[in-house]
Design a protein around this nucleic acid. Structure first.
Lengths: 355, 355
DNA sequence: TTGAAAGCGCTACCAA
DNA sequence: TTGGTAGCGCTTTCAA
């Protein structure tokens, strides 16, 4: 009531405070807001001349539709939420980059949150994204139970798990075939003539379990020994995301009566730490101990010994997840859940090349 | 009109379609929406008993306020926009992580966009964030001109440049003192006994210019020679973000009649490439050529030769930017712009240790 | 081809 | 302490 006059005629000609609104354009041109709205959305029922006038004025005023107002009516925010355990880890950074690139052209923006691998924090972040009514979510989860996901389902928001699966949860999943990762890496070590192959495994994720399964299967298939103590879990570490844990785990392996002559490491940071420990012990890579990692980080070529690693095509995972997410937006009844497993690829470098 | 009945009484008891609204709770409890809204925001003018009842029902329904509706009225979206050239670069990933962690507790979410170092793309992304009415923006810009920023200013949205400055633009800036970076690195090489120090410089950014200035000043101060051809620009590269450019630049330096015995590299990826080239040429680091990088990436310890690097405290930059951004949100007249320069710190490793 | 009216879910303002 | 009313900027529906 108070500011009716002041607001409604706010921008009859010039720029005053705040961004331009449909109403401003309508008033300037003597049209209704509906007409402007139709032009904005490319509605066909508009005369050519009118459309041109409106577009011209929009450009002059640098008009940007208000997403909040639009979202309120349409129920779509044109926003995708991404939850990752750690943005600093190149795998997740690459996934984020790929998703961002994929959805950008479709008018979507990406809200990224980092859970720091803390289940409680992740729940809160998911709640926050829910409150913001993102159109879909992509999650690399640090959770072990399913209730966060039940909440998402209640709100009927499509979501896609990446990299890590959740037990007892039937959900869209895109990741790498982790058992194949373990198989590929271990078989390679066998082919390089390793006789006693150890594994430094990750902690608590489906990823870690899958890779270990592949490792064991490869050993069994090739009738290789599986001495006790040859599978060492890497502790949860701080900022280096595995390197120091890899170092410690490798020290344990080196202290065994029969030390291994090959190690398959859960991921590249762990492998770096392990290599460090091996070199510090005065041993040679790969002559004394061959090392294989996973992730194929970008700097693998520049390490003290270039690291053989299993590539998991992170960019493809991101792109697939984004495509699936977009295809699910606004669907009434969600189609049956989809699982997509990328095939891993071995990239051989000096750390495992014995022949 | 059509669904008045259907909607208004939608969730009188149970869960039907869509998330709960204030109105649902009000109806269930025989109160007005205003009362519920006040409880939601912790308004004091509410009876204890009423408050308790409302909170209980909210919990039961898993109520989440609709951000879009709130934003429409308050004019605040509780969203910060971040624009970086490349999320994969650890510096920007770390900045993003720090900002995210800082604003999380205050109820803010972070929309992150990657400009791929493409000025045109960056303009579009900034436009997108403007349309979304983010409350503030943090930008590591790939632009050279100022009009994107004029547009932000027109919309009265506070923004903070990080890492890279823009010429002729008076704006909030948080970054590292790049001249000090160049000074620190170069002086260190001099102290290590290097006689002919080269510089592989970055392209086009204020950062690159500042570091080179520091390099030149250190040489001048210590009366060191500055032979022609000793400053080589690194080409813009693809996915390795500088490594291949560093390799090529170093090859050029190695082909000079008098090759350098020390190199200060624009950043760590470039330094990795340069070290690669040096080793490939059969030379030793640091005995034949000492190398210093910048950024102090996390894996510097694991390289073929551990890399001496200038640390720029990326996390502090992120945190400062976030704090400043939040402090600026909703301010009528923006206070005068603020510049904050972090002091760089040299982290010495084997690549430069000659004594 | 254009526009009037209603309303998305919430908050601001003021009266009761 | 509580609530009625208006309205944020836009889209939807339907009538003109």
């Amino acid at each position: 009531m108070i500011n009716q006059q002041g607001r409604k005629q706010r921008r009859s000609k010039a720029h005053s405070s705040g961004p331009a609104r449909l109403k401003d354009i309508a008033q300037d041109l003597g049209l209704s807001t509906v007409t402007i709205s139709k032009v904005l959305r490319g509605h066909p029922d508009i005369g050519e001349e009118t459309r041109a006038r409106v577009l011209k004025r929009m450009k002059e005023l640098n008009y940007q539709p208000n997403f909040a107002a639009r979202a309120l009516i349409t129920g779509r925010t044109w926003t995708i939420g991404l939850v990752v355990p750690d943005l600093l880890h190149p795998f997740f950074a690459l996934v984020a980059k790929a998703i961002s690139a994929d959805i950008r052209g479709q008018g979507y923006s990406l809200i990224i949150t980092s859970s720091e691998d803390d289940p409680e924090l992740e729940r809160e972040e998911i709640g926050q994204l829910l409150a913001r009514r993102v159109d879909a979510m992509v999650i690399a989860s640090a959770q072990h139970d399913t209730d966060s996901f039940r909440r998402i389902e209640e709100q009927q928001i499509p979501y896609i798990l990446i990299d890590r699966r959740i037990e007892n949860l039937q959900a869209n999943f895109i990741g790498v075939d982790d058992e194949a990762v373990g198989l590929l890496a271990t078989r390679h070590l066998i082919e390089q003539g390793c006789q006693r192959i150890a594994h430094i495994r990750g902690a608590g994720t489906s990823t870690a379990a899958g890779r270990m399964k592949g490792y064991k299967r490869a050993l069994a298939t090739h009738r290789q020994p599986q001495p006790p103590g040859y599978v060492v879990p890497v502790g949860i570490s701080g900022d280096d995301r595995g390197s120091s844990g890899g170092y410690a785990a490798m020290e344990k392996l080196l202290s065994l009566k029969q030390r291994p002559d090959g190690v398959f490491c859960f991921n590249d940071p762990v492998a770096m730490g392990a290599m460090h420990a091996i070199l510090d012990a005065g041993l040679r890579i790969p002559e004394d101990i061959a090392v294989v990692g996973c992730g194929n980080l970008i700097y693998s070529d520049f390490l003290r010994v270039p690291l053989t690693s299993v590539d998991q095509d992170s960019a493809a995972i991101g792109k697939s997840a984004a495509d699936l997410a977009l295809s699910l937006v606004g669907k009434k009844e969600p189609p049956r859940t989809k699982t997509e497993l990328m095939s891993p690829k071995l990239v051989v470098r000096a750390s495992s090349l014995r022949k």
